[in-house]
């Protein structure tokens, strides 16, 4: 398997706070790796030959790359903002393409049917027009002015509200959602999906959050996000075809899918094809 340019990108491989010296044996794009904490308390990632891989510890997680990253790990300025609570939601394994996991996270039209009575509910199914762009300066996909009616938008929400969203694709398998923050309307809650590609159709997903919410117990915050993601998991494991089609024609997008269309175009432009299929099969 030739991984291509995705080899030089950063990927999450563990929760830093859970590392020990024995290490976590895992895999990155088919390559066995070990993620451990060394005697100094620093994270260390080694491949099957014992070679040390580049490491960053950021957003609660350990990040590494099998290649030679040309860019620093993307910034989430909110991660340094005082007053936020940071939530390590924990790993969930999904038998799906890592790119499919990201694409599903960017989609809102499924909320009423998959996250019924939490993130959406009939008859409030309409997806209003929103804006999508590939920001050339940062080379990221952004969707803004997204809004949707949600019966229970967050653990801290009481009753239904129309929630505002911004989506950001910061790396081929890393995506950040900025969402209306019920207790602090001047700020955005930050909810991320960091995806570790194990193979082209298997991934470990590490959701992480940076929220303004002083009242909800940490365990309840974790469980709210686990609930949402586990509702998606059974959908993701049943998607056909398993790899994400990058060529138009196989799937019929509508206006609600513009974020997904931009994400696929951006992947194709960079030749980010690990977990994708290029020709209809």
């Amino acid at each position: 398997m030739i991984v291509g340019p995705m080899l030089d990108e950063w990927y999450p491989v563990g929760i830093f706070g859970q590392l020990d010296e024995a290490g976590r044996k895992t895999m990155l794009m088919g390559e066995p790796i070990v993620v451990a904490r060394n005697g100094n308390g620093d994270a260390r990632v080694t491949d099957s030959t014992g070679r040390s891989l580049p490491v960053r510890v950021r957003y609660g997680h350990v990040w590494t790359s099998l290649g030679d990253p040309q860019k620093e790990l993307f910034a989430i300025p909110e991660a340094d903002q005082p007053g936020r609570r940071f939530v390590d939601v924990g790993v969930v394994r999904v038998r799906c393409s890592p790119l499919r996991a990201v694409e599903n996270f960017l989609d809102i039209a499924h909320f009423p049917f998959v996250h019924t009575d939490i993130l959406g509910a009939e008859p409030h199914t309409e997806v209003q027009a929103y804006k999508v762009e590939i920001r050339e300066d940062v080379d990221e996909v952004w969707a803004t002015q997204v809004q949707f009616y949600q019966p229970q938008a967050a653990k801290s929400a009481s009753g239904g509200i129309t929630t505002q969203y911004m989506y950001r694709v910061a790396g081929p398998t890393s995506t950040v959602l900025y969402k209306t923050c019920p207790p602090k309307p001047s700020e955005w809650d930050v909810i991320t999906l960091f995806v570790q590609p194990l193979t082209e159709d298997l991934c470990d997903v590490w959701p992480w959050m940076a929220l303004f919410d002083d009242d909800t117990p940490m365990t309840d915050l974790i469980h709210f996000q686990q609930t949402i993601f586990l509702q998606d998991r059974s959908i993701l494991e049943n998607q056909v075809p398993r790899l994400l089609p990058l060529d138009p024609g196989m799937e019929m997008p509508t206006r609600a899918d513009l974020t997904s269309v931009a994400y696929r175009r951006w992947l194709k432009r960079h030749n980010f094809t690990y977990g994708a299929q290029l020709v209809a099969q």
């Binding site: 049917f113 009939e122 199914t125 309409e126 997806v127 019929m252 509508t254 609600a256």
Partner: peptide, 14 residues
């Protein structure tokens, strides 16, 4: 019917 676009009559190709 496409619930995300309630006003839209789906094209026959779908």
């Amino acid at each position: 019917r496409i619930p995300a676009h309630p006003g839209l009559t789906p094209p026959d190709a779908i």
